[in-house]
Amino acid sequence: MRSLAEINDKISRKHAVVLTVEELKARVVEVGITQTAKEVDVVTTGTFEPMESSGAIINLGHTDPPIKIRRCWLDGVPAYSGFGAVDLYLGATQAAEAADGEESRLSVSEPKTQIVKGGGHVIADLIAGKTVQLRAVGQVTDCYPRANFETTISRETINQFYLFNPRNLYQNFIVGVNGGDRPLFTYLGPLQPRLGNAVYSNPGAISPLFNDPDLQLIGIGTRIFLGGGVGYIAWEGTQHFPLQKRLPNQTPIGPAATLALIGDAKQMNPQWVRGCYFKSYGPSLMLGVGVPLPVLTEAVVANCAVQDRDLVAPIVDFSIPRRVRPTFGLVSYAQLKSGRMAIDGKSVRVAPLASIALSRQVARELKQWIEAGTFTLTEPVAPIPQERSFLPQDRWTEF
């Protein structure tokens, strides 16, 4: 129907017709796939959810005399320093340490509520323009004679500061429940015993990769909305599993494709990058990501027309401490979003981990960028692999 070059030309002239994925779904119901495909040039998708496999690359710049950093803390959070002399990688889930090596606390809202500060909070603080305390220990060499260094840094006083996230944008995920007899504290948040609640993380039909099930519209080099700035798809994500079983509409029935993302954190907006903490589990990072999908053919619209009732996720029992846990079958996202579902005849309350409202807002903001002519689309330089298996670690030694 149209090429990416034609779409970009319309964007540059501010003539492109852009709909959020929810607007497109509504338009398809109104006029059908064929007519919608004729009318629309770009569809915007979005999500705002915890993405713990995230982190930041930071280059501090050299001190005088120079230091070869081998241990480093940012506001008490350890950063990895085992590569360049003043290069750091700060993981979103790394917890802060106090002087005695124990975890330090971000705040205490109640006597029994302890919140651990982590890498996600430090990343969010830097993006927000705040100062961060740095403490470094060096390996003394002839070219790097300095043994230690302390200072404060901000995003304005460091050279490079960019997010490089090994695994974001899961193409579907799981629903967590707890069939045991005690509360469990998980990466989905607290799960109450005896099926007291259920939590799901993917925002469903508005989620980016559900609307491009075969990853035909994106690839390495695709420009995206990342944390309120411009980012790119850098590679397949860790635990990328495109061979997941799929429904006839080609959407996966559980965790499937993932993406590695990269973007300049100095250009990001603190509204879309927020540190968070999961009780008795640890710190993480809430991140807004939006992906534009060019309407090149009618098939693009047909894929984007998928509804929550057409998508399912597995209900997984976290009370069994194994890699492969028992499930209570599949549930549709329409049922999940109703707030309740039935498990073995019991009505269970359900809540999303992703913010549905902010996911919609990501898609709307990306739409505004494209309509304003400030964000054009990119041709991928290589596709995301579609034949990747998932390899577990079954050989282990107990210490």
Score class of each variant (00 low, 15 high):
residue 2 R to I: 01
residue 2 R to T: 00
residue 6 E to S: 06
residue 6 E to M: 04
residue 11 I to T: 09
residue 16 A to S: 12
residue 21 V to E: 05
residue 23 E to C: 08
residue 23 E to P: 07
residue 26 A to R: 05
residue 46 G to C: 10
residue 48 F to E: 02
residue 48 F to N: 04
residue 50 P to F: 13
residue 51 M to I: 02
residue 52 E to K: 09
residue 53 S to P: 05
residue 58 I to H: 04
residue 61 G to V: 10
residue 65 P to T: 04
residue 68 K to E: 08
residue 70 R to E: 11
residue 72 C to R: 03
residue 77 V to A: 05
residue 81 S to V: 05
residue 83 F to H: 13
residue 83 F to Y: 14
residue 85 A to L: 11
residue 86 V to H: 15
residue 98 A to G: 11
residue 102 E to F: 15
residue 108 V to S: 14
residue 109 S to Q: 15
residue 114 Q to H: 12
residue 114 Q to R: 12
residue 117 K to I: 13
residue 118 G to Y: 01
residue 120 G to W: 01
residue 120 G to V: 09
residue 122 V to T: 11
residue 128 A to V: 07
residue 132 V to A: 01
residue 134 L to G: 03
residue 135 R to P: 03
residue 136 A to C: 10
residue 137 V to M: 08
residue 137 V to E: 11
residue 141 T to Y: 05
residue 143 C to F: 07
residue 147 A to T: 00
residue 152 T to L: 06
residue 154 S to T: 10
residue 154 S to H: 05
residue 154 S to M: 08
residue 162 Y to N: 14
residue 163 L to W: 15
residue 166 P to A: 15
residue 166 P to T: 15
residue 168 N to Y: 10
residue 168 N to A: 14
residue 177 V to Q: 05
residue 180 G to R: 04
residue 187 Y to T: 10
residue 188 L to M: 13
residue 190 P to C: 02
residue 196 G to S: 13
residue 197 N to D: 15
residue 199 V to W: 04
residue 203 P to V: 10
residue 205 A to G: 09
residue 205 A to T: 10
residue 206 I to N: 03
residue 211 N to I: 03
residue 213 P to R: 04
residue 214 D to V: 08
residue 215 L to R: 04
residue 217 L to W: 07
residue 217 L to D: 03
residue 218 I to S: 04
residue 220 I to V: 05
residue 222 T to S: 08
residue 227 G to Q: 02
residue 230 V to W: 11
residue 230 V to G: 07
residue 231 G to F: 12
residue 235 W to N: 11
residue 237 G to C: 11
residue 237 G to P: 07
residue 240 H to M: 12
residue 241 F to K: 12
residue 246 R to M: 09
residue 247 L to I: 00
residue 247 L to N: 01
residue 249 N to L: 04
residue 250 Q to F: 01
residue 254 G to A: 10
residue 258 T to M: 06
residue 259 L to F: 02
residue 259 L to D: 02
residue 260 A to W: 02
residue 261 L to P: 00
residue 263 G to D: 08
residue 268 M to N: 06
residue 268 M to T: 07
residue 269 N to A: 08
residue 270 P to M: 14
residue 276 C to A: 14
residue 280 S to T: 08
residue 280 S to A: 08
residue 281 Y to G: 01
residue 283 P to C: 01
residue 284 S to H: 01
residue 285 L to Y: 03
residue 290 G to H: 02
residue 301 V to L: 02
residue 304 C to A: 15
residue 306 V to S: 06
residue 308 D to I: 08
residue 310 D to L: 09
residue 315 I to F: 07
residue 320 I to H: 14
residue 320 I to D: 11
residue 323 R to Y: 08
residue 325 R to E: 02
residue 327 T to S: 12
residue 330 L to C: 11
residue 331 V to F: 00
residue 332 S to I: 07
residue 334 A to Q: 14
residue 336 L to Y: 05
residue 337 K to H: 10
residue 339 G to W: 09
residue 342 A to G: 11
residue 352 P to K: 06
residue 354 A to G: 03
residue 356 I to Q: 06
residue 359 S to F: 05
residue 362 V to W: 01
residue 367 K to H: 00
residue 368 Q to C: 01
residue 369 W to K: 00
residue 371 E to F: 02
residue 375 F to P: 01
residue 383 P to S: 13
residue 384 I to Y: 09
residue 388 R to F: 14
residue 390 F to C: 13
residue 391 L to G: 00
residue 392 P to F: 12
residue 394 D to T: 10
residue 396 W to H: 10
residue 397 T to Q: 15
residue 399 F to K: 14
residue 399 F to Q: 15
residue 399 F to C: 12
